[in-house]
Design a protein around this nucleic acid. Sequence first.
DNA 1: CAGTATCCATTTCGATACTG
DNA 2: CAGTATCGAAATGGATACTG
Lengths: 232, 232
Amino acid sequence: MPSQYGQFCPVAKAMELLDERWTMLVVRELMLGSRHFNALRRGVPRMSPALLSKRLQTLTRAGVVERRLEGNRVTYRLTEAGRELEPIVEAVGRWGVRWVPQLGDEDLDPHLLLWDMHRNVDTEAVPDGRTVIAFVLTDVEPAARRWWIVVTGEGVDVCDVDPGDPPRVTVEAGLRTLTRVWRGDVDWATVLRSGELVLRGERPACRALPRWLALTDLARTPRPARRDLDRV
Amino acid sequence: MPSQYGQFCPVAKAMELLDERWTMLVVRELMLGSRHFNALRRGVPRMSPALLSKRLQTLTRAGVVERRLEGNRVTYRLTEAGRELEPIVEAVGRWGVRWVPQLGDEDLDPHLLLWDMHRNVDTEAVPDGRTVIAFVLTDVEPAARRWWIVVTGEGVDVCDVDPGDPPRVTVEAGLRTLTRVWRGDVDWATVLRSGELVLRGERPACRALPRWLALTDLARTPRPARRDLDRV
DNA sequence: CAGTATCCATTTCGATACTG
DNA sequence: CAGTATCGAAATGGATACTG
């Protein structure tokens, strides 16, 4: 199905599959551990189900993804060929972090941000018991302004409705600021100092928060030495 | 211009640029040293000039390619950001060699094959003076059947017309066979033994030929252990 | 040489609704 | 839950011709 380049070159043959729109993002989601159709959808919310279905079929036919019926649930996972794409996806991510740092307004998405943050919470660092972290995205329309990450012994959840318990820490920032912190484009210290991001709550919890929301390896990728300071 | 995913994820931001059709192949050509518009075209012959032009503009805007007027020639070259794509392109190539080994008939292209072979001739291995290697693609329409690679002290050329001098070696094989040898999908010894590929000429030259047409690193990529033998 | 311009067929995709 | 069906808008890109 993917369109052909008419070249025997292995780069061309690989890209016939891999350069189809959304494909690498589906692989990324599988890498990150999503196994089911609707779990995958959460990672690529702007993709229509029809298209996701089609891509999964293409990837399955290409031998990158294995589709299996487990019990009565359909499960997708990467095959060996798929797992060998991981270093490529990671390298693309590192390249993106370094060389495509500008984010448009369309790239900012509260749901996706919180979803991504929640799956990287360092549960070891968070105190035992039930911990709620509240987020207030100051510049976002009211309906998507308030979010909560709830950490318990069982796991980590995101909510867009108040879970009830008083938050241990409240993070207040613009969506862009929080996104940039999360991507590692700026660090906590900088935005705290400038006041772009404010933490409310008990002092020790506030100080610990950056360790709870541990930056990924991707976010810690060294940036190119900047030659000009005029970029945001 | 590239269409947007609406994600802040660096993989998504990078792929917005990189998954546009043809883009990685243009980068590959730049990596391999093509600097000028028409030189680039030779590496992507099925790409229309309008589209190549457009991709070069996009890549330039993205900071991956630098367009410069040198004298009165336009020159394209990779920037630092572009050079950092090299390991990605190479990794994609290795992945392709391993996991997309099947070639359709549309992937076979005599011109592209000879073009690629000629730029990898190991001139050190070829005897001094003028050496002509002739190719006869036994299963190809007459117009594209005969090719010559000419190695001189000045460099290496491909011709589709007889350069005159008697060839030191003549390689006779089907297009698919020669392509597979070149990609490293089968080795010289195997196809020589099976008779799929025949060398004519003086014995020493015939024996030396595989060293003249040195396989690329890509071709020497180890293949996955095969579990089934039914794949071609 | 290094592209641009134009035009149109095709493909692709997003939105929405629906199903076992 | 895990998709499929349908439809129309939009983008894409191939062919071809042309230009400074």
